[in-house]
Write a protein that binds this DNA or RNA. Sequence first.
DNA 1: TTAACTTATTTCATTGATTGAAAAAAGACT
DNA 2: AGTCTTTTTTCAATCAATGAAATAAGTTAA
Lengths: 400, 400
Amino acid sequence: MSKFIRGNRDLVKAMNRNLLLNIIRREGQLSRKQLMEISGLSVGSVSGIVAELLANHWILEIGEGEFTGGRRQTMIKLNSSAGYAVGLKLMEDRVVIAVTNFESTILDYRQSPITSRSNYAQLVAELAVIIQEVLDTSHIAIDQIFGIGIGLAGVIRSNEGIVHHSPYFGWREVPLAQLLSRQIQRPVFIENDVNTLTLTEQLFGAGRHYSDFVVMTIGRGIGLGIVVSNQLYQGSRGGAGEFGHTVLLQSANGNHPMGFTTLENAASDPAVITNLHRQQPKLRQSLKTLADVVSLADAGNESAKQALMQSGEFLGAALANIVNILNPELVIISGEGTIAGDYRLQPLMTALKQYTFDGLLDDVKIVVEPTDDQAWARGAASLVISKVFESPIIEVGVAN
Amino acid sequence: MSKFIRGNRDLVKAMNRNLLLNIIRREGQLSRKQLMEISGLSVGSVSGIVAELLANHWILEIGEGEFTGGRRQTMIKLNSSAGYAVGLKLMEDRVVIAVTNFESTILDYRQSPITSRSNYAQLVAELAVIIQEVLDTSHIAIDQIFGIGIGLAGVIRSNEGIVHHSPYFGWREVPLAQLLSRQIQRPVFIENDVNTLTLTEQLFGAGRHYSDFVVMTIGRGIGLGIVVSNQLYQGSRGGAGEFGHTVLLQSANGNHPMGFTTLENAASDPAVITNLHRQQPKLRQSLKTLADVVSLADAGNESAKQALMQSGEFLGAALANIVNILNPELVIISGEGTIAGDYRLQPLMTALKQYTFDGLLDDVKIVVEPTDDQAWARGAASLVISKVFESPIIEVGVAN
DNA sequence: TTAACTTATTTCATTGATTGAAAAAAGACT
DNA sequence: AGTCTTTTTTCAATCAATGAAATAAGTTAA
């Protein structure tokens, strides 16, 4: 059945409640008066809804504002203890886990190796143990968490809670959310890892004040998170953002039969290392990680610098495509690969500027935000938080 | 001030009215009963809103449905005379104009040369004359039209009615909508030409039953229209869809200093002709249009076939990027360049399949839809019609 | 100390769209 | 003419937003 959003009193209530909650999140702290002005709602409505949010402990009164000639404004903010979230980031060889409060501040964090990747029951049991451990050490009861968020690379059908395809784990159509949810008896959400990072940026990071922005991650792969009209874009079936598979034409000396290759093959961290190995075979033993490449570049090695630079150039050209097509207000460059710093970023920016159409880049703000393991886990947790702040009018209508 | 969508009775009314009107448009004809089932609204609401739509002549009762054991359903449909629209497509050397009814059927159509492109006052006066002519011959009074739609290539700030940049006309920041609106005393809307075509497809074409689709136009340039969650995506400032400026890497024998070029330079209709000229200089005089190239190919000329094929291959690879990134449900391939038929489309499809990630293309429907001058003018007119059907909840929230 | 003043917040009567039950309409069949 | 079935309209109830009026809470001046 096609499910349309139809208007009624309940929707109105939900919309306005959600609107106020989101304004409070964005602004940090403010008064009912300010809420009135920003939201456009009437005095009575704001008063009533705020009373309800206070009664349900979503928000707190935190004192009075400045004196401006009459009664002082009562300032309110989110209740950071309104609820908690657990985030799991599944990496190739290990799982990184974090507990955050309602405002996405990490309360506890740890990691653990993944021993079973084909035996789902065992995997889920292991995850349940780790989750309980991290909850114990942070003194959060399981029913205090809104739910558990999982982030991993690949095509995720987040609506259905299914891993459609995970190349690293070799999974196809694995109903991971359901499996873990049954074990834990709490809601479980699952999403592409880059998208979880994008949600964190949207809710509590640089994207907070932008309605249209993209996040590009550089690392083991190349990822892209897209926010359009304040909403994470997931593609029609969750496959959006397979940016790393962006096709590029390649020079004639490339090894692809038709002369094409993908961005991931050309510009990811492993690609940089592989290219360097090809150039200087004697490095094959000593050079294993991107950090090694950066050290080499720091030591003045021209080949290393060159490899990073070429990667940046590819990435910049690809990002220019994105800017040309989507015209975002903000571009966030993130991922482990940012540790290469200007070796990669400077040519990236040059190429980006060069290949962006006309003056399109003038209005675009660009932010570089390094990402570590904790950031990924925090992202997965903010996937859960994002559900609380989600607009009641998602999907204006679905074709039948 | 940042304008949020807040819920109230007026919004509810507008939403439900709009919902029913859109369902009627999509379904063609149906009964109040069906409207109830599809929309999910209560009997009373549907009855009331339909009564109102009838009273205002938006819709018509067109007879009774089948007998199913009781009272027959009264079938209703859009009133194709509810209002009319004028569409102008500004081409390089001429303007193409159409009058359509409410259901986007062309009532009259003509074209006229553009004599003044730098004197805006004169241009607008000329346009006003042509508009009046076409209204006269179709016996539509000026106040029967909802407004006038203008489509042209370039970056258009449609919200502001401004041509940000039109390469063909050499315009920058021209407030064309306002200029014409003052002259005509009717609402004037302006939009990128590919976007107008996309709107037609969304409202009355192949896109009618899809919430996420893209339109790629091949011709003098390469264009892209994007519909996400039932909404035309315009980029944060109207610059979305500058697809033709998608950067591609090029082989070493290319003439671009850094080894990059754009899709438009590599695969547009003029690019095909230029490439062929370069290959066979003696054709420089006789070979002027894409139709000439197709004739040549039909006559068995291998170079012509090759040129079209290479163009298709580039386009397919670029389109694969789009599918990888946006994961649409439907891809419409359109534009004058489709006259090259399979010479171009077959390699396009091959490349598209080859470079689309994994099984992403499996769920995507692909439709080829040739486009002539009339289609562009109809598109511009449907820009006007689209305003009538536009959801009252556009922009869930705007960052401040 | 008190009264006057200013601004923020709450209270409350009014409004009006949805809702769903009941009534009415419309036709076919016996 | 009466019965039956289905569709559509009518109408009383509900409840969130609205905004004016009342109240709260403080400062300042007398």
